[in-house]
Design a protein around this nucleic acid. Structure first.
Length: 343
DNA sequence: AATCTGTGCAACCGCGATTTT
DNA sequence: AAAAATCGCGGTTGCACAGAT
């Protein structure tokens, strides 16, 4: 903590619109100031932030008080470093929402937007870049992509990204990926997340995709979507358009994620025991809800994708109710790539 | 031991949105 | 309805500290 005389030095300049009328201190907060602010807000609540400094006896502007409270003094803040689970949630949601830190932070109880933003800039960003991924789009950086497509696998999509303006959707061909030796990769290989074991009563999970990566990505179909229901009803999946999402969460985790962690896109988690036929009526209600949520999400992310080759019969139904099928995903990647090559 | 350099993070800034007057 | 005040957000800055030289 910095001594008060240093803070006085920092306090000379005055630029906040809201504090022109009064003399305000800037820079780091002293323990005494913290105490004053905590005491005041604990007793009175913050009310109008602009009046807090006067009432609390602080020579700060309201904006500074608000920031200090929200980012540091609030009692419900979670201390300690960001966990691996939280990190994966941040990556997942960032892929969908981009730099909307406040929105991302809402999915991490006790974390602030500032904390998430700082963690992204100081940690995750570097990890992604080290893997040859663009931290803004989550796609491969261009030279990386070129190397994989042209040097290692001359005519096949080895690690292909579905190209969209705000690429929130990644199709990964894991069979190709697993064939790439670590020495071919430009980025250092970083061991990542401990993958939790699947619970005993769950179906056998498919092999992990591209384990070389420090940020693993898996693809899922959500059978609760309206598109899925319709295509299933017509018993024809060919040509159907069913949303696929990618996630850094391993299939085995889906049955366990709590609501606040589940898909930023608004997918509702379902307990394993609650999934199937027994709850058809309830599911109808859920489907309607999710469909409307997806419509909102769709404005932010173009998650829908032509899935004419998704083989549901050979897919694994996960505890959360999503289907997982790596070979279909691979085929999808190939089709997508071929389609774009044709254009 | 002194200096330099890189990193993490708390705090600030500016701006747009919302609310109040 | 318009202006002013306030809030909330994302980007940026700069300080403190640790490790390297």
């Amino acid at each position: 903590m910095v001594s008060c005389d240093i803070q006085e030095g920092l306090g000379n300049k005055m630029s906040h619109q809201c504090c022109r009328k009064q003399k305000v201190k800037r820079g780091l907060w002293s323990p005494e100031e913290d105490e004053k602010l905590i005491r005041y807000i604990t007793i009175h609540g913050h009310g109008s932030w602009s009046s807090v400094p006067n009432l609390a006896g602080l020579e700060r502007c309201g904006k500074s008080c608000r920031l200090r409270w929200i980012n540091y003094l609030r009692p419900d803040l979670k201390r300690g470093s960001i966990t691996e689970k939280e990190e994966r949630i941040i990556v997942d949601i960032h892929r969908i929402l981009g730099n909307r830190w406040a929105q991302i932070a809402k999915h991490l109880p006790g974390r602030t937007d500032n904390e998430v933003k700082n963690f992204w800039n100081s940690c995750i960003k570097k990890k992604l870049i080290a893997q040859g991924l663009d931290p803004n789009t989550h796609n491969l950086l261009s030279d990386y992509s070129y190397k994989l497509n042209h040097e290692n696998y001359a005519c096949k999509p080895s690690y292909h990204s579905h190209q969209q303006p705000t690429s929130t959707f990644t199709v990964v061909n894991s069979q190709m990926i697993s064939g790439i030796s670590s020495t071919d990769m430009k980025a250092p290989l970083i061991p990542f997340p401990m993958i939790p074991l699947a619970p005993d009563n769950n179906p056998p999970y498919p092999p992990l995709s591209h384990e070389f990566s420090s940020i693993l990505t898996y693809e899922y179909q959500n059978p609760k979507t309206q598109a899925f229901q319709e295509s299933t009803a017509s018993q024809s999946l060919v040509g159907s358009s069913v949303p696929i999402l990618s996630s850094t969460s391993h299939p085995s985790e889906f049955g366990m994620l709590d609501e606040s962690c589940m898909w930023a896109g608004g997918y509702e988690p379902i307990q394993y025991s609650m999934i199937p036929e027994k709850r058809q009526a309830e599911q109808q209600v859920e489907i309607e809800k999710i469909t409307s949520e997806l419509a909102i999400v769709g404005q932010n992310m173009d998650a829908s994708f032509e899935t004419s080759n998704f083989d549901f019969a050979e897919s694994t139904l996960l505890p959360c109710g999503m289907y997982y099928n790596q070979s279909s995903i691979d085929q999808l990647a190939w089709d997508s790539w071929a389609l774009q090559e044709k254009k």
